[in-house]
Amino acid sequence: MKTLTPIEQLPLFTTQIKAFINWTRKNALWPLPFGTACCGIEYMAVVGSHYDISRLGAEVVRFSPRQADLLIVAGTITEKMAPVLRQIYEQMPEPKWVISMGVCASSGGFYRAYHTVQGIQSIVPVDAYVPGCPPTPEAVFQAVIKLQEKISKGDTPSQRLVAKKKMAELTSGNLENTGS
């Protein structure tokens, strides 16, 4: 007669809910490629069959901000484009992350010019910067891996904000009372 296996011998492991959620989040990033220029074409190579970003679980490219949690700003952001980028970022559900791909997005690059935004950090908060003009696909991969490390630790600004909001709800106070 077969008896039940004692619970200690079952192939199980215990974890925190928080760690589990972070683990799922980091392995299922849904990027929104905000490709404006040359880096956008290089991002296509990142998604393409040779490099293939699905190795990192981030291949479900979504062009709708409502369905994405990773904004990849690939290319120069001009003054004309800046309000559009801001609006797209605000439309994304939380928690959300931003990768600034290439020097133009990160600092304006060699376009020190009257119509080019000198770095997108003045418009949206950035979690990872990728240098290069355009960056190689390997560099983009590295940024995604770094971001995944941050997400699994739960210490990105967006995650902290979400946790803070949750805490505020639980203690039925408003956001200001919970402290920083």
Partner: peptide, 11 residues
């Protein structure tokens, strides 16, 4: 158009 006007001629 103009969303990618990054001032080539001025540069």
């Amino acid at each position: 158009i103009g969303y990618l006007h990054r001032c080539f001629e001025k540069m």
